[in-house]
């Protein structure tokens, strides 16, 4: 689905921002890109979207070379949800906002199809359609942005820190929706996220970056359990993983508070019985 072959990128006049990236993300995966600020995460997702073209190497998405096609042409296949919904929203009503993106992708002649799809999304997200996006809360605006990103049913969904500025409930709502999309419709998801708890709860694969290079690539839990790697990337694993790791053998596999507390309680019980 997404194939990076030795991709490098440097912003004009600057040193290389990312270098020698090679990875392969299959259809239906849910991958998170981790790393501290300046590690090259956003550059990488922009390369996947084709907003940036590799200065070296080759990036293909769905078989299309990003360097040889225009972003606006590929928008039907790749959706990009930005950190700040206000850069995306430009219409006076939620309905218009969703239809605007569809028109850009499908063309103006498809009005019937656009109307049907817009209605479908409005219902799914619980909007009437007449709301003024600028009067909504940040979390709701992010949902409007997500709805219009998803409108053309892209096969790949890219999220760049989608939960910044959202509270816990809003964050959960957005992420649950994305998980559902990933599981039920097989949408490939690539996410940049600073919240390690969110990554643990939702992503299945993690790519760790530092200094513009790919440090590691593997299942989320394995990555989080690799203490040396986490340290090298200036990342702090989720609390439960740290607690479980510290408690050692017999606990290490636990990754949520429920399981871990049961394991500890069971051991305490055995102790008392003995």
């Amino acid at each position: 689905m997404i194939r990076a072959e030795n991709v490098s990128y440097s912003y004009p006049g600057n040193a290389q921002t990312v270098a020698g990236l090679s990875f392969h993300i299959e259809k239906g995966e849910f991958a998170a890109i981790l790393g501290e600020n300046g590690a090259g995460k956003t550059t990488t997702v922009k390369l996947i979207d084709g907003l940036l073209k590799p200065t070296e190497g080759k990036m293909t998405v769905n078989g299309l070379d990003t360097a040889k096609s225009r972003v606006s042409e590929r928008a039907a296949q790749v959706g990009f949800l930005f950190q700040n919904p206000d850069r995306q929203i430009c219409r006076n009503t939620v309905r218009e906002e969703i239809a605007f993106g569809l028109r850009a992708v499908w063309g103006r002649r498809e009005e019937d199809k656009i109307r049907t799809r817009t209605d479908e999304l409005l219902e799914r997200f619980g909007f009437t359609g007449d709301e003024d996006p600028f009067a909504l809360s940040r979390g709701q605006r992010q949902q409007v942005a997500l709805a219009s990103t998803l409108a053309p049913s892209p096969a790949v969904l890219i999220l760049d820190e989608p939960t910044t500025g959202l509270d816990y409930r809003e964050c959960t709502r957005i992420m649950d929706f994305i998980r559902q999309l990933n599981e039920e419709e097989g949408t490939t998801v690539v996410m940049v996220c600073h919240d390690m708890e969110v990554v643990l709860d939702y992503a299945r694969r993690a790519l760790v970056m530092a200094g513009g290079r790919l440090l590691a690539d593997g299942p989320v839990r394995e990555i989080f359990r690799d203490e040396a790697l986490m340290k090298k990337a200036s990342l702090l694993p989720p609390q439960i993983i740290r607690i479980a790791g510290e408690l050692g053998e017999g606990f290490r596999e636990a990754d949520d508070a429920e399981t871990l507390s049961s394991l500890v309680a069971a051991k305490a019980e055995r102790r008392r019985g003995a």
Binding site: R70, S72, A75, G79, R87, Q88, C90, A104
Partner: peptide
Amino acid sequence: EEMSGIMEAQTARGVEFDT
């Protein structure tokens, strides 16, 4: 910066700013 951010976001959703 804001303008280029907006244009980037719009390009990504299919508006032909790369025309």
